[in-house]
Amino acid sequence: MDTHFDQLLDFPCFQTFKVMGVAHERLPDDVIGCLQNHAPGDYNPTVKPSPKGNYHSVSVSVRVTSKEHMELIYTELANLELVRVVL
């Protein structure tokens, strides 16, 4: 992944990651577990169901320290089994 985050943001900063995945009770825990591995912190995710209830979005604000750190988090979140999209 070669983004331009370093040109757009001043690090360290807080970035809200919005993770959309299958509506499963494990999704928020999987997202937080992944974040704890790469950016330990005290997280309070917001979970919203899709209109039909098949998917949930999990939004979490994370302190990122560099372009590489942010790219790593995007990649690791996208690799989670229940996740379909990371914004």
Rank of each mutant, 00 (worst) to 15 (best):
Y74R: 05
S50G: 12
K67A: 08
S66W: 03
N54F: 12
S66A: 08
Y55L: 13
S57E: 07
Y55W: 14
N54I: 00
V58H: 03
L72V: 12
E71R: 13
E81P: 08
Y74W: 14
S61N: 13
N54Y: 11
I73G: 05
V64N: 01
V60R: 04
A78K: 15
V58P: 02
E68C: 01
E68Y: 02
G53T: 01
V58W: 04
E71K: 10
E76K: 15
E76L: 15
L77C: 08
Y55D: 06
N79M: 14
E81K: 15
N54T: 02
K52P: 02
T65N: 09
Y74Q: 06
E76H: 10
T75E: 15
M70G: 01
N79V: 10
V60C: 00
N54R: 11
E71Y: 04
L80V: 10
E68F: 05
S59I: 00
A78E: 14
E68D: 11
H56L: 07
G53L: 05
S57D: 02
V62L: 02
A78I: 06
N54H: 04
S66C: 07
P51C: 07
E68Q: 11
Y74M: 07
S50H: 11
T75M: 14
H69I: 00
V64W: 08
S61A: 13
P51G: 04
V64I: 11
S61I: 05
N79C: 13
M70C: 03
S57T: 13
N79Y: 07
H69W: 06
V64T: 04
I73N: 03
P51W: 08
H56M: 09
T65E: 13
G53R: 03
T75A: 12
S66G: 09
Y55E: 10
T65W: 14
S57A: 11
E76M: 15
E81R: 15
I73F: 08
Y74F: 15
V58N: 01
H69L: 06
S50I: 11
E68V: 06
H56C: 06
G53W: 04
V64G: 04
K67M: 05
P51M: 08
S66E: 12
E71W: 04
A78F: 07
S57I: 00
L77G: 09
I73P: 07
S50F: 11
H56P: 00
M70D: 06
